[in-house]
Design a protein around this nucleic acid. Structure first.
Length: 804
DNA sequence: AGCACGCCGACT
DNA sequence: GTCGGCGTGCTC
């Protein structure tokens, strides 16, 4: 095989294809698809992925591969195919798809270095800069630019005395430690020892150590063990008694933690009934998708654990996805406790190096199970036996940048490839998944009871309009306040949720709770401070901000929104004795801060945990007996057709946090629209009825799961350019698609300007459009030059979850 | 992305 | 007459 087809590391459409390179003789038969290489490309060097090796090339002037970066492929055959599929199904570049499947440590780091031209020596250089380049020293070009002698350097480059070299480096490397072992036999060591002079005590101790111990030992440990310094070891190395070698080690983020071994728990009747079909599917090595709908606390995790156990027994591997925010120590504990060192953990809290090490453990088959966030779906296992996605409804499973994939779809792709079951678990499945389960595309497994028959908490809905009428203008209803105070007195804990999303956007009447929504879309209008207008981000409808409530004529109509900080201040006012932990983007941005705060709350160092959605998941504290939702509505009125669904999900998840142990739990939901079905049904824990109602609305308004969506967002520094491009695209799509497809917009994005760029979007609703992908690709192709040269960007999101 | 090639204005 | 502006197009 003489040639290799390589996808180079350039994210532009012109280079989104393979380039042929000659394989140097020494690597023929060694270079395989899926390996990373460094290749010359134009005047530079780039990293690339070999996707094919072949005997012939149609290209005349092929260059040769410069470097081989991997001894074995980093992308196996399956992942290469998956990469192709990702490119096709998300319309991203091939290189983007490949990189998304690998830890970022494997990405290239490009540097330009300055060095003396190979034919010259440093005496040729200007005296001012000679010392910089003595002994073949290299200088980073970026640093050189800042040097006071840069003008001299420039001249030397022109004169050809200095040259610029492009170097491709790996972002993070394997960590190594120095290890010492004996190379002389024990007899020789003994002989050498006896010949040492009396005062060479340390050398003697070291030799003695190696006479008594066979195994190599890390240098650091040896020094500790025999109480000596490096110099004595070095002497013995020089004398050829010992040898120092670099050995690769893993960075282990859980090194210091101890995991209590746990054993399978007896399953309830319901659990047994639910696990049977999964085990049957495993037995038959058959690909099935299971939707496991189980109320909070119904023991889904135990089912996962026992199914995984079967998989491991068969010598196969398992992938478990959990949402990033619930990848807490508590969760990790459950898997590590059951499966010990067979588990790799992948989440964003790890450093690049730590992620790389976990990835390598998976790649080498040293672990059999990975628990991780979205990207763990690309774990390079060879023989997957099961894929589990917990909290299936979580939006974090969809990547919001290219490639815009949904982990659920990738899971199903891999499940098919490996002929293995995929289990989607949730107490509040997405309508899409539940609808598929009802149609029989997925198999539905239902768990209706909590294990140990603990009751679901009682949920009280408080009408905040009533509170206002009573003259209570604080954020806390009388009921919530009393209950909070009561918890403080009893030494119990409370969790308070605030929906930060939807901040200051929707407009609501504080008297009657009326929310102004679009007459065409059944979605709340968004307030635009700039021109005092209310706009719909779906169809473009707009109207002036009314001075009075259109329903009850009250003048207390205003846009709505509040922040966690303000709540914290207010708690301090009304409950000064309460110790509060606030969790939001501000307090959790530092690495490990999230865990630290939760642990602190677990140790009862605070009475109230206050936060946004991020605390809704996976919390399980003994003494939490009260959960308060400050404003259930903020999310309800987001300009998003999934607003009701998200509200229902959040309220249900939140309710699940209270009273998980012996103490019974209470939930207080504060709202201005207590009659809304998503709030009412969350109170009654009635998913089935919610599903029915919501499906009806989706059908009526042509939304998923009845229709598919595509969101095209165009952005540019100039409003007119962004708008006109969006208009062109809209027209083009109208021509290309059937008249059954609806093309809405362009309208300005819910966030009309980001980073001084104006944003417009078009939405396409369709059921079946054979030429859709081709047409979208045509758009990207048509605008490719403009996207390179000017700052036009067009992003295409297939099946979007976020409509911003 | 970076770099070369190429075709029109202000300069020694 | 040339230097250099950045529009256009290519990179195996």
């Amino acid at each position: 095989m003489r040639y290799a087809s390589v996808i180079v590391d350039l994210k532009v459409s012109q280079t989104d294809r393979s380039f042929d390179y000659e394989i140097p003789h020494e690597w023929r038969g060694i270079i395989k698809p899926g390996m990373r290489v460094v290749v010359p490309f134009g005047s530079r060097k780039l990293q690339g992925f070999v996707v094919e090796v072949k005997d012939e090339s149609a290209v005349k002037k092929v260059k040769a591969i410069d470097e081989l970066l991997d001894p074995t492929p980093v992308l196996n055959e399956e992942l290469l195919k998956l990469g192709e599929w990702l490119t096709e199904s998300t319309l991203c570049f091939k290189i983007t798809a490949f990189q998304a499947m690998l830890p970022s440590a494997l990405k290239a780091n490009y540097q330009k270095e300055l060095l003396i031209h190979k034919d010259r020596s440093y005496e040729h250089l200007h005296p001012d800069i000679q010392t910089l380049f003595q002994k073949n020293k290299k200088l980073d070009l970026n640093k050189a630019c800042k040097s006071p002698y840069f003008h001299v350097i420039q001249k030397e480059i022109e004169a050809g005395n200095l040259e610029v070299q492009y170097v491709v480096k790996q972002k993070t490397n394997k960590r190594t430690i120095k290890q010492i072992k004996a190379i002389a036999s024990k007899k020789e060591l003994q002989a050498f020892l006896s010949k040492l002079p009396k005062q060479a005590n340390k050398q003697k101790r070291i030799l003695q150590f190696f006479i008594e111990n066979d195994d190599p030992i890390p240098l650091k440990k040896l020094l500790e063990e025999v109480q000596c310094t490096v110099s004595s070891v070095k002497t013995l190395i020089d004398k050829k008694m010992l040898l120092e070698e670099e050995v690769e080690v893993y960075r282990d983020p859980y090194e210091k933690e101890h995991f209590e071994k746990t054993n399978p728990l007896p399953l309830t009747n319901e659990q047994t009934k639910a696990i049977q079909p999964i085990l049957a599917s495993l037995e038959k090595e058959q690909h099935d998708v299971f939707l496991m709908y189980g109320v909070t606390g119904s023991g889904k995790t135990e089912i996962y654990l026992q199914a995984i156990e079967e998989v491991l027994k068969k010598g196969k591997e398992a992938i478990v996805l959990v949402p990033e925010i619930s990848l807490t120590p508590q969760m990790v504990q459950r898997f590590k406790g059951r499966f010990g060192s067979k588990v790799a953990v992948l989440h964003s809290g790890l450093s690049t190096g730590e992620k790389y090490d976990e990835w390598r453990k998976i790649d080498r088959g040293e672990v059999k199970l990975v628990v991780g966030a979205r990207s763990a779906i690309f774990a390079p296992f060879q023989n997957i036996g099961i894929i589990i996605i917990d909290e299936e409804h979580e939006t974090s499973y969809k990547q919001e940048e290219n490639p815009r994939y949904h982990a659920r779809e990738v899971a199903i792709y891999r499940g098919k490839y490996h002929s293995c079951p995929v289990v989607l678990g949730s107490a509040t499945p997405t309508l899409e998944s539940y609808a598929r389960a009802q149609k029989g595309v997925y198999n539905l497994l239902t768990l209706t009871e909590r294990v140990n028959k603990r009751p679901l908490p009682t949920v009280e809905i408080v009408d905040m309009r009533e509170e206002l009428r009573k003259g209570n203008r604080t954020m806390f209803s009388e009921s919530l306040y009393t209950k909070l105070k009561n918890r403080l007195e009893n030494g119990e804990q409370a969790v308070l949720f605030l929906n930060k999303r939807g901040y200051s956007s929707f407009v609501m009447c504080r008297d009657c709770g009326f929310v102004i929504s679009c007459p065409h879309c059944d979605i709340s209008l968004t307030y635009h401070r700039f021109d005092e207008k209310l706009k719909c981000h779906y169809c473009g409808y707009e109207e002036m901000m009314p001075p009075h409530c259109p329903d009850c004529k009250s003048k207390y109509i205003r846009f709505f929104g509040t922040g966690t900080q303000r709540v914290e201040e207010e708690i301090a006012k009304v409950l000064p004795e309460a110790r509060v932990i606030r969790m939001d983007n501000d307090t959790t941005s530092r690495k490990g801060a999230h865990e630290k705060l939760l642990k602190s709350f677990g140790r009862k160092e605070a009475d109230i945990l206050l936060g946004t959605q991020m605390i809704a998941k996976g919390l399980d504290f003994q003494d939490v007996t009260l959960v308060g939702v400050l404003t259930a509505d903020t999310m309800l009125h987001l300009p998003d057709f999934r607003a009701s669904e998200k509200t229902f999900q959040l309220l249900t998840q939140v309710s699940g946090r209270a009273g998980r142990h012996t103490l019974p739990g209470e939930v207080v939901i504060q709202t201005y629209v207590p009659e809304h079905y998503s709030i009412q049904l969350a109170q009654r824990h009635d998913y089935a009825l919610f599903f029915q109602k919501e499906m009806y609305i989706r059908k009526l308004h042509h939304y998923p799961p009845y229709y598919y969506l595509v969101l095209i967002t165009v952005s540019h520094q100039e409003v007119t350019k962004a708008l006109s491009t969006a208009e062109h695209i809209s027209l083009f799509m109208k021509k290309r698609l059937s008249d059954k497809a609806q093309i809405l917009g362009p309208v300005s994005s819910p966030i009309p300007r980001i980073n001084d760029r104006y944003r417009y979007q078009c939405m396409i609703k369709y059921k079946r459009e054979s030429s859709l992908y081709e047409s979208l690709k045509a758009i990207l192709k048509h605008y490719q030059q403009e996207m390179n040269q000017t700052d036009l960007t067009i992003s295409i999101d297939l099946n979007p979850l976020m409509l911003m």
